[in-house]
Design a protein around this nucleic acid. Structure first.
Length: 571
RNA sequence: CGGGGUGUAGCGCAGCCUGGUAGCGCAUCGGCUUUGGGAGCCGAGUGUCGGAGGUUCAAAUCCUCUCACCCCGACCA
């Protein structure tokens, strides 16, 4: 491809709105341009990278035996009403009506559509297992799109859906996809980790997420430093501490704690460690207000809370409503003689002589004990684990905390959709049987951003070889010099004939401009034709990684370069 | 959703407080000189000042409404 004939609008200055590296570099390198909040045009260079990811995904899915289809982006509401998600899915679902006033949505995912297809077309147990996938544009009307392509509203996703006769079949399909995903992310040259995950609004039994490790990641993942336990923070658990030999119950005591609101303030005021306090959190749910308790030094995880309560959503009410429900300000709220339903974190089960709000303005209770002072509540997993806690699986390791970008997610859906939508076949005995489903997503466009987060330096992108828009950028130092131009042209043609993807920078610009742009664009290899070395019959070969810089005779250029760019590597 | 911020040339910004000829840098176009890490000089073009309404002799500037974009926020909110 010729630079001067291609739209590659590089920017010298950092776009002011871009907060993360990948967003900045994608704009600066001319890969994308924004159209609205969370929606982007992919320019020629960016599209090449996107197609690289797509091709890798497609190959591995095909190899794993999945069949490619392409489903509609626009879907009728009836399907979503049938699965029950029309009401359950919140504002993220972009809804609209067609000219006949029929409600529709722009598909954020395709469980309903594929279920509908399969129930119509697949009748016999002989036709399963089957796995269908597509690579398609999705739209999710995110609360707050940000970080460019990383969390856009419109994005390119690969989604696959497996159908099996029984749980064993689903296990096999799941494992096959899990393995395919590992190959995909390896081939993309990414450092990633598979973790146990919450199932979110897709629903279903068990699931794993694939995270690219990066500081800018929006998700927190927890992993053990000894065994292979790894989980999303929304799901991660730590080993429970052993019950301590019981401290004798001390007499209950009400203490005035004027003006001491936060756990920290109260702990300091009473000269107690924070883990002797109980944090009382009033949350709002579709089932009304509920009081949640975690240890003073812990934090509540709302997703865990929603799961524990078996409710779709748990939110923090605004201060006025909270005070109305509680009858006291939040700083003095507590579970003793509370009118509200109480759920406590597991960790509090063995806590004795603890401190909590007295439900009386500016007062706390100390030496509170379950049973004697208040009924033993329901216990559940409500809290975030913290780095350094012992691993629940191996008990010898310690938990670590990383940030990750979720690029893949595999679920065992079970019969959640197939039952609701009546997806069944006749088995070998002639009996109807509901199929069990799995679903498997990959954020194709997000991988492009994640790859940049992991592969860049101060000067620009450093593409892994497998994703680079071009393997080689051939810089013509002075296109107006006919000798240099002719040699550059020959090399350009020869490389193309040898099947090498090459970008010819034939712009009539100063050398410095082309060097800066080449750094920014991040092709793994750079070939300089012209200038000083040319006068000596040489060209210069450099790697973007900086580990290679050599002069080679013009006639040897092709032979030297080819082995370095052939095949798929991680460069 | 709540809170905050910003909208002025393609991009980055100043001007607004205190109303009175719409500016600067980069980019673009032309010319000359340059030419190995984002060149220099000379010249040129470029704007419904986000939109609507209002106040005023006069509005980028003041007031009201509105739209868009960005940031922050779910353990004292």
């Amino acid at each position: 491809m010729r630079f001067h004939k291609t739209l590659i609008p590089t920017l010298k200055e950092d776009p002011v709105d871009a907060q993360v590296v990948s967003h900045r570099l994608m704009l600066r390198a001319g890969l994308i341009r924004p159209l609205g909040s969370g929606i982007y045009t992919w320019l020629p260079l960016g599209l090449r990278v996107l197609r690289k990811v797509e091709a890798i995904v497609r190959q591995e899915m095909d190899n794993a035996g999945a069949q490619e289809v392409l489903m509609p982006a626009v879907q009728p509401a009836e399907l979503w009403q049938e699965s029950g998600r029309w009401d359950f899915y919140g504002k993220e679902l972009l809804r609209f009506t067609d000219r006949h006033d029929r409600p529709c949505c722009f598909g954020p995912t395709h469980e309903e559509v594929i279920s509908d297809l399969v129930r119509r077309e697949i009748r016999s147990y002989r036709q399963v297992p089957a796995n269908f996938y597509q690579i398609q544009t999705k739209f999710r009307d995110e609360i707050r799109p940000r970080f460019g392509i990383m969390r856009g509203r419109e994005f390119l996703m690969k989604d696959a859906y497996s159908f099996d006769l029984d749980a064993e079949g689903l296990d096999a399909s799941y494992q096959s996809m899990f393995a395919a995903y590992q190959r995909i992310f390896q081939r993309c040259g990414l450092a990633f980790r598979a973790v146990e995950a919450d199932t979110g609004s897709i629903g279903g039994a068990s699931s794993h997420e694939f995270h690219v490790l990066a500081e800018s990641g929006e998700d927190v993942i927890i992993s053990c430093d000894q065994c292979d336990y790894a989980a999303n923070l929304e799901k991660a658990i730590a080993a429970e501490a052993d019950a301590e030999a019981g401290e004798a119950a001390a007499p209950l005591e009400k203490v005035a704690t004027p003006g001491q609101k936060s756990i920290e303030e109260v702990a300091r005021f009473l000269q107690l460690p924070m883990d002797r306090l109980i944090k009382s959190l009033l949350v709002e749910t579709p089932a009304g207000p509920i009081l949640l308790l975690v240890r003073g030094d812990r934090s509540l995880n709302m997703i865990k809370a929603a799961n524990a309560l078996k409710l779709p959503q748990v939110t923090i009410p605004d201060a006025d409503r909270a005070a109305y429900w509680a009858g006291v300000s939040m700083g003095s709220l507590g579970p003793v003689e509370s009118r509200l339903p109480v759920v406590a974190d597991h960790e509090l089960r063995n806590l004795r002589n603890f401190v909590c709000g007295a439900n009386e303005e500016g007062c706390h209770l100390r030496n509170v004990n379950w049973q004697r002072d208040l009924p033993v509540p329901q216990f559940a997993d409500l809290r975030n684990v913290t780095a350094g806690e012992p691993c629940a699986r191996c008990h010898s390791g310690r938990l670590q905390r990383h940030q990750g970008i979720e690029v893949g997610h595999v679920f065992k859906l079970g019969d959640k959709y197939s039952k609701a939508m009546n997806v069944k076949v006749l088995d070998s005995q002639g009996n109807e049987q509901i199929l069990v489903m799995g679903c498997y997503g990959i954020g194709v466009s997000r991988i492009v951003a994640a790859a940049i987060e992991q592969n860049h330096d101060a000067n620009g992108i450093r593409w892994p070889r497998s994703l680079a828009p071009f393997q080689v950028e051939l810089i013509l130092m002075n296109p107006r010099d006919s000798n240099e131009a002719a040699t550059g042209e020959q090399l350009y043609q020869a490389l193309q004939q040898a099947g090498v993807e090459v970008l010819l920078d034939d712009r009539d610009e100063r050398a410095g401009v082309k060097f800066k742009d080449a750094d920014l664009l991040g092709c793994p290899m750079r070939l300089l034709v012209g200038g000083r070395s040319f006068k000596e019959g040489m060209v210069e070969l450099q790697s973007r990684a900086g580990d290679l810089s050599q002069r080679i005779p013009i006639q040897d250029a092709l032979a030297t370069l080819l082995p370095l760019v052939k095949g798929e590597g991680h460069g």
